[in-house]
Nucleic acid binder design. Structure first.
Ligand code: FES
Ligand code: FES
Lengths: 164, 164
DNA sequence: ATATTGCGGATCTATTTAGTCCGAGATAGG
DNA sequence: CCTATCTCGGACTAAATAGATCCGCAATAT
């Protein structure tokens, strides 16, 4: 049971995007430089977030990514499941109906006790992550964080304008 | 995030072993036939449970596996983590200290908010599984289950004694 | 018109998982 | 006491999945 390393990337990127002024965007290259990550691979992950409806993207010069909704309406669960999918890590294969000890179908009306408990556990995991929004995360950061983040991001904004 | 298929195998095998009379054992071959599983591979997983202290094994003729402790003292969590390890699926790599936006060490005294929340979620998952013991699972099975299981297991017990 | 950015697919590699094998050790029977 | 056989134990190999990378296409602001 392992979560992709890129999970941490997108969680932090989403937090970073939440610190921008409404309507502003940051490109994949900017975010990659900010966290020292492989730019092409990070871009792919951000695309997954767009497909999941968490981020919105604008193409063209000065384009980039921004939150698709207010930070208060984006939970950590939505970010994590955009990458890894929402399916439970435990997949019941109805093993009780196979082999010499197979149970008759009439005893399998309800889901297996073990499968039910594993599903409960996954639901508890999801509930915890769904209870925390990006706005909640921002609330515990120092008040100076947004300004710092914005200025550091801008440092990689557009390649130096050739004035000659 | 995915759990090995064999997780379901060992959960059911542990439940099966819990239905035996105290001291009795079942071999890997018996359990494999009971659930129609590849015997050598199942044996490998059961060995992992032995190493984790959940099961005990006896070698030699008429040997096999049995629970290492009373069923009430074995939780689903112990069985699952014996196979997959106890580490969290989310591994924080301290991404906040890398790249252009790296935070100074003085701001990283505490663990990252995101890492803390992910750890909370994993803890909720573990807590749910730790709350259910094998004895609890047996309690919801029909009272006739143990007798049925024992007789079906015995059908594969020892190879037919050559009387000639 | 051009340069910059996101988007999607195809591709390659690495890690994990699934599956199989043979040898060491212990018991039961002779 | 010895032997034969049945068991676990760990090492080894193959397949699948996920990680990571690349390149060409579409869209947009300058
Ligand atoms: S049959 Fe799948 S968990 Fe019991
Ligand atoms: S630095 Fe690892 S989760 Fe924030």
């Amino acid at each position: 049971m392992k979560l992709p390393v890129s999970t941490e990337w997108v969680l932090h990127c989403a937090t970073t995007l939440a610190q921008l002024e409404p309507g502003a965007t940051a490109s994949a290259a900017q975010l990659a430089a900010y966290y020292d990550l492989p730019a092409p691979y990070l871009a792919k992950q951000l695309q997954a977030l767009v497909k999941a409806g968490v981020l919105a993207a604008t193409t063209g010069p000065r384009g980039g990514f921004r939150l698709a909704r207010p930070a208060a309406e984006i939970t950590l669960l939505q970010v994590v499941e955009a990458l890894d999918g929402a399916s439970s890590p435990y997949e019941c294969q109805e093993i009780r109906q196979r082999g010499r000890g197979a149970l008759p179908p009439q005893d399998c009306r309800d889901t297996c006790v073990l499968a039910a408990k594993m599903a409960d556990a996954h639901e508890a995991w999801r509930r915890t992550l769904a209870a925390e929004s990006l706005a909640d995360v921002l609330a515990v950061l120092p008040p100076t964080a947004p300004a710092r983040t914005r200025s550091l991001l801008a440092a990689t904004a557009s390649p130096p304008r050739r004035t000659s």
